[in-house]
Design a binder for these strands. Structure first.
Lengths: 235, 235
DNA sequence: CGACACCTTGAAGAGGTTCAAGAAATGTGG
DNA sequence: CCACATTTCTTGAACCTCTTCAAGGTGTCG
């Protein structure tokens, strides 16, 4: 973690508010929501925003940049549990034992909004919309992980990678980016870890998709040529 | 779902309260906590407490019996996402979209406490300990799923089954049962679905563990002879 | 007691891993 | 700005784990 000049900024003026905040707030509600963010912090590429074992104190909303979260076993094995992008929340793992159980590592220089959890709880007690929003955020994470379990438990390599790509473009599209073009922020190895495959398998599967004319790959630049073919692959 | 005679009972008198409720409540706090449970419902073996697509209205705490939760794809594939036992909470998946996204099926005749979610949210706003408890319950589920992802993403069959058995006995032990003896409530196929393996692999791996003198298996009755060997297998 | 669900075991096969080598990109220091 | 080191990616070949298919056994419940 590389804390920089804390900078107080309002959610109400943030262009990501549709992602972070509940919809349909009026101005006074918006103002109260602003209070949950105490500061912003910059994180350099490769640095950890938080790490397993660290004391939990806050949730983090990504303003810019991308992260991966990963869990690590005592014997050194690790598993990427997710890739997070602008507007997504990190740190929920830390609530239950007051310590984080995973690492959040920036895949590129990033900036996050710090939301002290005590303050979230305080405000949630007065402000039902924030309370329900928090519940939804956590529930969404649980449902997302169900999807990953399904992927890891029952899909084959091609299906996993197709599902992964579709999920990425869908989230990028929701943020105003192209539906067909994407720049991967993570290595083949990181994708492999997330999908329960080896980096060679990721590479080979990319090559196969390219041969089949489903995508175009140049390093980390991927263009989806045939979305329907990818969808068909998933089931 | 097979709703039976709703029966109002107090958490304060429940022998599972250490599992369901925050610890260290005084009597008046306990009394308020009681209010979250509206009724109890019996569920017959094989029946679903709730199913994917159903409107979400409540969380459920298991009083007796065992459940599995599973997600299903459009093309019929399904994945067991967890096995739940007494004192554990189900239904968190439904919060985010107001509809359930998985099924909860009783593995044997069961009884659950119904906790209407609106009431939980209301009481949470007045009662910080309940609020924090709910946050911990959700966070615990997220962390549990991280563990499953690690298992599915990076472990081999023997490691997965060893981890599964250790997790089961550990949870049973916390409920006062033996550390070494357990009665599986689920089929080999269900275990396989949970662990991302086929039922034949589960069967073979059980047989191998038995040959190696690590466990004793007679149908669904499993006795762990060498816990350390199982632990060693996991890493 | 018979039907049905569940479990075990074998043999063959497929999908993904491992090991290895080289190519392409990226970063670093002079 | 170029040479060099490092990281990342690709591809091939052999191997291994788990799956698939198949058959028979065991237990359970009406």
């Amino acid at each position: 973690m590389s804390p920089q000049t804390p900078l107080k900024v309002a959610c109400s003026g943030c262009n990501l508010r549709e992602l972070c905040m509940p919809v349909g707030l009026n101005d006074s509600e918006m103002a109260r929501f602003d209070e949950v963010v105490s500061s912003r912090v910059k994180v350099r590429r490769g640095a950890a925003l938080f790490s397993a074992g660290q004391k939990f104190s806050a949730l983090y909303a990504i303003r810019t940049g991308y992260f991966k979260t990963r869990v690590t076993t005592t014997d050194g094995r690790d598993q990427v549990t997710g890739f997070q992008m602008a507007g997504e929340i990190m740190g929920l793992d830390g609530i239950v034992n007051d310590h984080h159980t995973c690492d959040a590592v920036a895949l590129e220089d990033a900036e996050v909004c710090v939301m002290p959890f005590e303050r979230i709880e305080e405000l949630s007690r007065e402000f039902g919309k924030l309370q329900h929003h928090m519940h939804k955020v956590m529930s969404r994470e649980i449902v997302r992980e169900h999807g990953v379990m399904l992927l890891l438990g029952s899909m084959r390599a091609e299906e996993r990678l197709a599902a992964f790509l579709l999920n990425l473009v869908q989230r990028l599209h929701a943020r105003g980016f192209s539906q067909s073009e994407l720049l991967l922020r993570m290595t083949r190895e990181e994708i492999g870890s997330y999908l329960g495959l080896k980096l060679e398998t990721i590479s080979r599967t990319f090559s196969k998709f390219a041969e089949d004319g489903v995508i175009e790959v140049r390093q980390r630049h991927v263009r989806i040529l045939d979305t329907e073919a990818l969808r068909a692959l998933v089931h």
